[in-house]
Nucleic acid binder design. Structure first.
Length: 422
RNA sequence: GGAAGAGUGCCCGGAAUUGGUAACGGACCGCUCUCGAAAAGCGGCGCGCGCAAGCGCUUGUGGGUUCGAGUCCCACCUCUUCCGCCA
């Protein structure tokens, strides 16, 4: 959410932002609606002031006749106020709907572009894996090694269903354990968060209203989170933080649910795109300064790069273009891992910062040195998602005999340096 | 799921004639005093409109009654206690 005052004063900048993000919002209409809103409110406030003034007179008037006369007068005024309220109702509805569409301003450094194909590669690490044998894809390898069962996954869940079995399940736990150790050592506080949340939390993070068709909803009108960022941000909603608490660094773990409604034809095979998965997420709340946001943004992204490097998986980091960043995001980096059988990099992590776009919606504030309340800044970045990480891990580390080499940091959690057929 | 009670300002505590327009205290910030601090005193301490004076909004949420609602009515949310169910 942007401040309406900011939008009014920087209309051209906001228009450019919407254009850069390929977001369709009628800002001229918003300005017109806001004019009407302000006009009605000004009129109504005047009448309410009058009403409050006379009400005090009524309370003070002992004389019944005088009193009755004032009450009669006020009945007329009350009707006028009622009319103002009636006309304000639909105006506010449209105003709020428009306000929820207004995008945050992307950073200057965000490149122009339509989709992920226009993202800019910033760095790449490691050599693309070469094989001196005919490599297989992760579905084939995992099935052969008893690590996953896709057939029964589909039988039980349906499209995009999967089971992780045997070493597949154990490898997931190993990754969670290692990730926990790795990220907690960086100073994060661990958190296991609710995956079922009230709607307002998804509005807070900016996932609603625009991504409505990608979220699951319960019969109680609650929603399943697509990322723990939602629950962590909600945790601090309507709260005033102590400045000494900042930056807050949370490492959250949760199941994540995504309908993938817009991507029916894509990635139909394997573990790249599934309806439910687990994710460990870095979430930061910091002071309201651009420099702070930038600093922590670089930091959380680098954390995940380091984690991937410690596993030894080739990756690249891209700077997302305007068309590929979310409504609330100022800037986003994606980390993409090499997937040998697809011969391309696939997104594994996403680091973004929002300035006060989310905290304004959540009403998350802190007191600054002058004692003034300010909206905190928020950021988040994937630490590691399972099972998607398994795709690259298994395809890159497969061996000629069909087994999979286990990266050194995971060995102690798995109790083995190789996964072979059971 | 059933029954009873409760929810007050950025935070904590806590009043408001059984309808008359949110006291007060603490914490916190600033200033005065002080070598410095404590104490004390003064001011500030939620959101919006306005250059300002000032005005409007804010008692869990949303409605309703009324000239006027913290107070009365309805729905919902949350908490507490009891019953039921349960990994």
């Amino acid at each position: 959410m942007l401040d309406i005052k900011f939008i009014r004063e920087n209309l051209e900048i906001v228009k450019q932002a919407a254009q850069k993000k390929r977001i369709d919002v009628d800002l001229d209409r918003l300005m017109a609606v806001d004019d009407t809103r302000r006009e009605i409110m000004a009129r109504m406030e005047e009448r309410k002031a009058e009403q409050n003034r006379v009400s005090k007179e009524i309370a003070a008037a002992g004389d019944d006749a005088k009193r009755q006369q004032l009450i009669t007068e006020m009945q007329g005024l009350k009707a006028e106020i009622g009319k103002d309220e009636d006309s304000l109702g639909p105006v506010m509805e449209e105003w709020q709907a428009l306000m929820l569409q207004v995008p945050n301003i992307p950073d200057m450094s965000v490149p122009d572009g339509e989709s992920d194909e226009d993202n800019q590669e910033m760095k790449s690490w490691g050599d693309r894996t070469k094989f001196d044998f005919a490599p297989k894809d992760h579905v084939e390898i995992m099935t052969a090694l008893g690590m996953a069962d896709f057939e029964r996954g589909v039988k039980v869940h349906g499209f995009r269903g999967y089971y992780l079995t045997g070493a597949g399940a154990r490898l997931s736990w190993a990754i969670w354990n290692y990730a926990q150790e790795f990220f907690l050592a960086k100073g994060f506080d661990p958190m296991i968060v609710p995956a079922i949340v009230r709607k307002s939390n998804l509005y807070g993070t900016g996932h609603l209203p625009n991504e409505a068709e990608d979220v699951y909803k319960t019969q109680d009108e609650d929603y399943l989170i697509g990322t723990s960022e939602v629950s962590v941000m909600g945790y601090y909603g309507d709260e005033v933080l102590d400045k000494t608490q900042l930056p807050i660094k949370k490492l959250a773990f949760s199941p994540c649910f995504r309908r993938e409604a817009g991507s029916h034809g894509k990635d139909t095979k394997g573990l790249i795109r599934v309806h439910e998965f687990f994710k460990i997420e870095q979430v930061i709340l910091c002071e309201a300064s651009h420099e702070e946001s930038v600093k922590w943004h670089e930091w959380i992204n680098r954390n995940t790069e380091e984690f991937i490097e410690s596993l030894g998986i080739p990756y690249r980091t891209v700077l997302n273009c305007g068309g590929d960043i979310g409504q609330g995001q100022v800037k986003k980096y994606d980390i993409e891992l090499w997937v040998p059988m697809e011969e391309k990099y696939r997104e594994i992590s996403s680091a973004s910062y929002f300035h006060d776009f989310q905290t304004r919606r959540f009403n998350t504030r802190y007191r600054d040195d002058e004692g003034k309340l300010r909206y905190a800044h928020s950021l988040n970045c994937t630490a590691i998602p399972t099972p998607r990480i398994l795709v690259s891990l298994i395809e890159n580390f497969q061996q000629a005999d069909g087994s999979v080499r286990v990266p050194a940091p995971l060995q102690k959690y798995l109790g083995s340096d190789v996964i072979s057929a059971p």
